[in-house]
Amino acid sequence: MTDTRLMHTVGVRALEWLWAHRDGFRLETDVDPEVGFLERFKPVGELALICRVLFREGVAGSRQAELARKLLDHTWRHTLDGGRMLVRGQRIEPMSPIPFEVYLPYKELGYSEPEVERATVLYHRLESWSALELDPTRRLGLAAFQRRFGLTPRPPEAALVAPTWLARRPEPWTVGGHIAYDVTHTVFHLTDWGEHPEALPPDIADYLATWLPVWIDDWLDLKRWDLLGELLVIDACLPRPTLDERAWEGFAAAQQADGAMPAVRGMPEGEPDEVFDMIYHPTLVAAFASVLATSRALSELTHAAP
């Protein structure tokens, strides 16, 4: 098993980079509505989700927790203008689930914008919202978010697992990059982003316990850090995580001195905003994988103690 300090340090450094580059979380308010104002919300929502996991697991050091709180405050107040940008997003594209998906983790952390909630409750009553043609994995995620918000998911969550790729437990040798991301996100949604590993159906957990080591081995050798990070999250969601030493050492070694995690191979070059857009996600994933793996490693220690 991997040294817990190594896994923990990856997350500490990732948060430092995210804080230092917080201005990268930016919306394009003057973008042509036809291009899509909502396109740039994704990084903000992902940041809030990961920060929420960090608080939930309670394994962050004081510096890490402070940075997470400051990042949330910064993005809520500045990037989202206290939630007004989410309202604006809902008005531009009422049927898009994105503003709601970004809002939920902020709400769970104590931030509030009543107008987003009012619109969400209304949209939830619409046939159109429940009939949106989303990918099965995305649909499953939206249903989980509806439940967490206090709504009764439409369609019901239980009916949404079977259409995912993972639920069918297909031939593991057919997995490529796109399928692998579907797999990781199905697990995120089934476990509420690692909060309830026990919610993973046993046949899926067995399937992953058997084949995940192969995928981790492969994407480690391919130096695809973004996907490897997500696979390391999945490992930490399993009943018996492997916390694979070779994978974690490779992952940690790929991280830059300032905490940035490249998506593939080494650091990209370009304008600061371009570079941010290419590496914010793997860096967030690094923070996510770090906090879950650290938490699981500490739990194992607790259980192992006499």
């Binding site: 040798w173 997995v175 084949w211 192969v214």
Partner: peptide, 14 residues
């Protein structure tokens, strides 16, 4: 058997 099966998957992927 599981390890050999993993190796098969790895070889196909590569």
């Amino acid at each position: 058997p599981v390890d050999v099966a993993r190796g098969f998957v790895r070889a196909v992927r590569r």
